[in-house]
Simulated assay, not measured.
Amino acid sequence: MSIQIINQLESALGETVALLSSFNEEQINKIPFEGSWTAAQVGRHLYKSEADIDQLFYAPAQPAGRQPDERAEGLKQILLDYSTKMKSPDFIIPEDMEFDKARLITSLAEANDKMLKAVSGTDLTDIAPLEDGNPLQGSTKLEVVHFITYHTMRHNHQINKIKEIVQ
């Protein structure tokens, strides 16, 4: 089961980089409609939510004592329901600025590589050591991989919608 979600994660992360690469410098920073992020801001949001998360997978953890993917389907249903609008936690809201396309894509690709290496080389059945108040607290490392996968897929959908408008 974990190899399948890791493959999905790798595919979703690769799709993000490919999507962002398909914009030109002007389009990637163009606001598609009032109240929306630009494609670059979506990329930056993904970077901020993924940067250094690889450390979570290397950290010591406690056994789950339950099925390690017990919450995975619920996460999938919530995150892949594109009809619902979600609010991002403040610490991963992208800055209101123009981003350099090449730097954004390079930093995101590097974070992706670090994360994929971490999830591929660890026991995902343990409880993820998350801080108090984190909505995923109590989730296994495997469930965190599911969350990251579906979160990335959700934002790839968003980037595709932005692309339709600005290109």
Rank of each mutant, 00 (worst) to 15 (best):
E143H: 07
E95H: 07
V119N: 05
D96H: 10
S36F: 13
V144E: 01
Q77M: 01
Q77S: 07
A51Q: 12
L13G: 01
Q77A: 08
D96W: 00
E98W: 02
E34I: 11
S49Y: 04
L19W: 10
D113C: 01
V144H: 06
Q41L: 10
T122K: 07
P60E: 13
I93Y: 02
N112G: 06
D90P: 06
H155N: 04
T125R: 14
W37P: 07
L79R: 01
D54A: 13
I105F: 09
E110Q: 15
K117W: 08
I6N: 14
P129T: 09
R66I: 01
G133M: 14
H151C: 02
D123E: 12
L13S: 01
M1D: 11
A18Q: 15
A39G: 10
P68C: 03
A12I: 00
G138L: 03
D100M: 09
F91W: 15
A51S: 09
D52Q: 13
Q167N: 11
F23C: 06
F23V: 02
I5H: 03
I3M: 12
K161Y: 01
E143D: 09
G35S: 14
Y47V: 08
I162G: 02
P94Q: 12
R44F: 05
P94S: 14
D90F: 05
E15T: 13
W37E: 07
V17R: 06
M153K: 14
H157A: 05
T122C: 13
S11R: 11
T122P: 08
E25K: 15
N160P: 00
L124Q: 11
D52Y: 11
F57S: 04
I53P: 00
R44Y: 07
I93E: 13
A109G: 04
N24D: 15
L20F: 08
S22A: 15
Y150G: 04
I105G: 10
A102V: 14
D69E: 14
T84D: 03
P129Q: 12
G74H: 05
E73N: 10
Q137M: 06
K48Y: 09
Q55Y: 12
T152Q: 08
L108K: 10
S36L: 03
Q62D: 11
Y47R: 02
